[in-house]
Amino acid sequence: MATICMVTPGKNKDTRVTESRKLLWELGKVIDIKSISPKVKLFTIETKKPHRIEPGQHFDIKLTSDSGYVAQRSYSVISDSNYTNQFEFGISKITDGEVSKYLHEKLSISQNLLIRGPIGKYFNLNKTTESVILIAGGIGITPFIFYLRQKNYKNKISLIYSAKNQEEFLFKKELENKNKLYKNFSLIVTLTKENKETWKGLDSRINSKILKKTIKNHLGIKTTYFVCGGSNFVENISSKLIRVGIEYQDIKIERFGP
């Protein structure tokens, strides 16, 4: 997604030259699997050849059963580098999910699978050199983690992150460290299903009040908005942004699922 069926890019000046590289399926070898929350595992997959990748891009994974049935799904790429042959994917396990459940339960280190990418040049966070407000719901944090890892934090970056609870507050340490380290980075977290006794931070779903407060901190700074998460989340947040007065063409979205 870029996320990707129907679109409205906004008055689009960034016309690009058509790229005619054929996307080929490659063998990817699983070199690491880590649980990072009860629902999410981080898979590291290695290809023979390195690729140039940008935050916001994804790879497609293709699985084939012994009866010849094929399934494909997209996963946003995470990495420490923009040119690498090792790609991390933070994948959330969906009950009854055909692909995510297989990846979580059956896939093991040193197995191979077919992948192709990188795909998606629209929801590419590096296309803007300006300030950004990133808004993530749940697993929708993955493209932003990659973005935040490669930044020098010269521009103002705010991340509004809605997660269920402490356990599903993904990449917590990494984000909190960055928040301490860089004065240009603000982390705003809301945990919507956490115990109110132990969590004293924000606990409502992302609302206009939270958005407005962050927008105010970017007052006078040219800012692009990136929204990523499930379809309902993205729909909800992007309409709220429009309602509080953000221009259509300054909002870019990626929907992860129905």
């Binding site: 890019p9 094929v70 379809s231 992007s238 870019k252």
Partner: peptide
């Protein structure tokens, strides 16, 4: 890896059956 969706001749290769109607676009509505 096994298929966990019922097989359906009307589904093109690499696709899965969705019951809801997902919304897709690169920008807000």
């Amino acid at each position: 890896f096994g298929q966990n969706k019922s097989k359906n001749e009307k589904i093109p290769p690499g696709q899965y059956l969705e019951k809801s109607f997902p919304i897709l676009s690169a920008g807000p509505t």
